[in-house]
């Protein structure tokens, strides 16, 4: 039996309205990845994480809970959960991720920032002023809240004199580059993904990978944002041989992640199908979206055949000796 759609989206909507995020996240957890990097505050060009990587520990924990509720009586309590969530942050009582999980996702963001720096790119960071873009609610059609969030973000960017942002994931890229201009008059922010930036400026690798990597394109990058060549160019500079699965580039196959919060079983089925397609071409698979990595990795672990899913930055870190 499916989870109650309206109640689940309602909880996320209430959180964005009241707590400025679909899953509440403290400023400390949002900015922990940047500790010690001495990134300047603000500036004309800033890195914009959209908090997606920082949310992943919470998302992975909640996804497991939701999957267990899907076919249990617990799904009938979602209405009460939504009511309680209006007063207290219910997610805080649903079991958080282990510190190692937070560290893992923070390491990804640190490595993105370090590789940009190593490539000579200068940028600042908005620290605790940075907000989640509302991507999940945009997908689920809660447009009035997305518009409000877009306005909040645009106000922060303008107040800091930001003219250009470098994004770290496809969903944030899409929101800032393609969605916000439709809802904010006069919005003229220049938005580039870090992969687009690196495709132009990354140096040759100091430790070339010399291995084959099967590429999984993100739907959001490939079909919404036309970011297809850039990840391949970056991997080529890193010394990897990119292996193309049958469904690649504009015809990439979804990882199933977009419906994980509402229909966990359906999501997992799509992920398993996708991993099967990818694994036909090799066991080392690279993806460029935290949601894709999470969905595919979960499906790959069930196979127990050595199929590994890694974020593209993990491979780049190896090639450029980062891994801080």
């Amino acid at each position: 039996m499916a989870l109650p759609t309206g109640k689940v989206i309602g909880i996320m909507a209430d959180n964005l309205r009241k707590r400025k995020n679909v899953i509440p996240l403290s400023a400390k957890k949002s900015t922990a990845w940047a500790e010690g990097l001495n990134l300047p505050r603000g500036g004309e060009t800033v890195i914009y994480t959209g908090l997606l990587y920082q949310l992943m520990p919470g998302i992975t924990g909640l996804a497991a809970k939701m999957a267990s509720y899907e076919n249990s009586f617990m799904r009938h309590l979602m209405g009460m959960g939504r009511l309680a969530n209006k007063f207290i942050n219910v997610a805080a009582f649903m079991g958080g991720a282990k510190p190692a999980v937070y560290k893992e996702y923070n390491r990804i963001l640190r490595n993105i920032a370090c590789l940009l720096q190593k490539s000579g790119v200068e940028f600042g960071y908005l620290y605790e002023q940075e907000l989640y873009t509302g991507a999940l609610l945009h997908d689920n059609g809660v447009e009035h809240l997305v518009k409000k969030q877009a306005r909040r973000i645009w106000d922060v960017l303008q107040a800091n004199g930001v003219k250009e942002v470098i994004t770290t994931d496809p969903h944030t890229t899409n929101m800032l580059r393609s969605v916000f201009p439709e809802v904010i008059e006069g919005y003229d922010l220049k938005v580039r993904s870090y992969l687009e930036v690196l495709a132009e400026v990354a140096p040759e690798a100091t430790n070339p990978l010399n291995k084959e990597l099967v590429i999984h394109d993100s739907c959001m990058y490939a079909r919404y944002e036309d970011v297809i060549d850039e990840p391949r160019q970056v991997l080529a500079k890193a010394g990897a041989k990119v292996v193309e699965p049958d469904y690649a580039g504009k015809l990439t196959w979804c990882c199933g992640g977009p419906v994980e919060s509402l229909f966990p079983s359906k999501s997992k089925k799509v992920a398993e199908e996708r991993v099967s397609q990818l694994a036909e071409n090799g066991r080392q698979i690279t993806a460029m979206c935290p949601i894709c990595v999470f969905s595919l990795r979960e499906a790959a672990e069930k196979r127990d055949d050595g199929t590994e899913i890694h974020d593209i930055i993990d491979h780049l870190s190896e090639a450029y000796c980062l891994d801080k």
């Binding site: 759609t5 945009h138 997908d139 689920n140 059609g141 447009e143 739907c219 079909r223 919404y224 504009k250 015809l251 196959w253 979804c254 199933g256 977009p258 419906v259 509402l262 229909f263 359906k266 799509v270």
Partner: peptide, 26 residues
């Protein structure tokens, strides 16, 4: 709500219907 909004359908649509946008409107 099960639609992935992945736009694979739009790639093969000969009439260029904005399917994902329509789903979001619904």
């Amino acid at each position: 709500y099960s639609c992935l909004l992945c736009k694979m359908c739009e790639e093969s649509c000969p009439a260029d219907v904005h399917i994902a946008g329509n789903v979001k409107k619904l």
